[in-house]
C-alpha cells in the first residue's frame, strides 16, 4: 500500500504538471522557440531517437568510467590516509585544494594537455575529479570509525594490519563509502556535462553537447528532449546506487532496516 502510494503520488503530480504545461502553451500561444509543449518535446525525442540514444551512450560511458575511476582511486587514497597519519597530513591539503577549485576553471587546461584527439579520456578525467572528493572524505571517516575495542580484540588474536583493514575497517566504512558513492554518482554526471560543454564541437557528441547544438539552431524541443534524458540518467544512477546500498546493508545497518 505504502509502496503504491510512494510511486503513484509523484506520478500524479507529474501528469498534472505536464497537463498544465501543455494547456498553458496552447492557451497563451507561446512560441515553440521560447517554450515547446510536452507533446512537441516527445515528438522531438521520437524523431531524433537513434541519434539521441547514441549521445546518451557517449555521455553514460564517460559518466560511468569517471564514477568508477573516482571511487576506486578515492577509496585507495582513503585506505592510505587511514593507515598513516603522515600520509594524510601530507596529502590532505592537496585533496582539499582539488575540492575547492572549481573544476570548470581547470577543465580547458585538462583538455589542452590531454588533447582533443583523446577527448573521452579528458572528459573522464574532468568528471572523475569532480566526483573524487566525497568518496575520499566519506571513506576516510568510515575507515577511522572502526570500534576501538574490536580492533584491540583483533590485535589480541594476532591479526595483521591487513586483516584488521579487511575484516573490521572496510566493513565499518561500507555505509560511509556507499553514501559517498551516491553523491559521486550525481557529480560524475555533472562533471561529464561540464566536460562536454568545454570540449565543444570537437569529437564530443554527448547529450550536453547536443543541448548546446540544438540551442544554437533554436531547436528548443530537441534541447528539452536531451535535457529530459539527462535527468532520467541522473535519477537512474541514483536509483541504482540506492538499490546497491539497500542490498548490501539491509541485514545489519540501521539506515537500511525497514520499520
Amino acid at each position: 500500500m505504502t509502496r503504491l502510494r510512494d510511486i503513484l503520488l509523484p506520478l500524479i503530480v507529474l501528469a498534472a504538471l505536464l497537463g498544465f504545461w501543455e494547456w498553458k502553451v496552447a492557451h497563451d500561444a507561446i512560441p515553440p522557440y521560447v517554450l515547446p509543449a510536452p507533446s512537441a518535446i516527445a515528438r522531438a525525442l521520437a524523431e531524433n531517437f537513434s541519434s539521441l540514444m547514441a549521445s546518451l551512450a557517449t555521455t553514460l560511458t564517460v559518466t560511468l568510467l569517471a564514477f568508477l575511476a573516482a571511487t576506486a582511486s578515492a577509496l585507495a587514497l582513503a585506505i592510505l590516509f587511514s593507515e598513516s597519519r603522515t600520509v594524510e597530513r601530507t596529502f590532505h591539503p592537496y585533496a582539499v585544494v582539488l575540492q575547492v577549485t572549481p573544476i570548470v576553471a581547470i577543465a580547458p587546461l585538462i583538455l589542452l594537455w590531454i588533447g582533443y584527439d583523446r577527448v573521452t579520456l579528458a572528459e573522464t578525467l574532468i568528471a572523475a575529479l569532480v566526483a573524487f572528493f566525497p568518496v575520499l572524505s566519506n571513506s576516510t571517516l568510515g575507515l577511522r570509525s572502526a570500534d576501538f575495542n574490536l580492533v584491540d580484540l583483533m590485535r589480541l588474536y594476532g591479526a595483521s594490519r591487513l586483516q584488521i583493514l579487511w575484516r573490521v575497517r572496510l566493513p565499518t566504512a561500507l555505509p560511509f563509502l556507499l553514501s559517498g558513492m551516491k553523491t559521486a554518482g550525481g557529480l560524475s554526471l555533472i562533471g561529464t556535462v561540464v566536460a562536454e560543454f568545454v570540449a565543444g564541437s570537437g569529437a564530443a557528441t554527448g547529450l550536453a553537447w547536443r543541448i548546446v547544438e540544438a540551442g544554437n539552431r533554436l531547436e528548443i524541443a530537441t534541447m528539452f528532449a536531451a535535457l529530459a534524458l539527462l535527468a532520467v540518467t541522473g535519477v537512474g544512477i541514483y536509483a541504482a546506487l540506492s538499490l546497491l546500498e539497500y542490498w548490501l546493508l539491509r541485514r545489519w545497518h540501521e539506515s537500511a532496516i525497514a520499520r
Partner: peptide, 14 residues
C-alpha cells in the same frame, strides 16, 4: 587469553 569487553563488541555486519 579470551577477552570480553563492557560492550558486546560484535561485528554488526555478520
Amino acid at each position: 587469553i579470551g577477552f570480553v569487553f563492557q560492550d558486546a563488541t560484535l561485528m554488526p555486519w555478520t
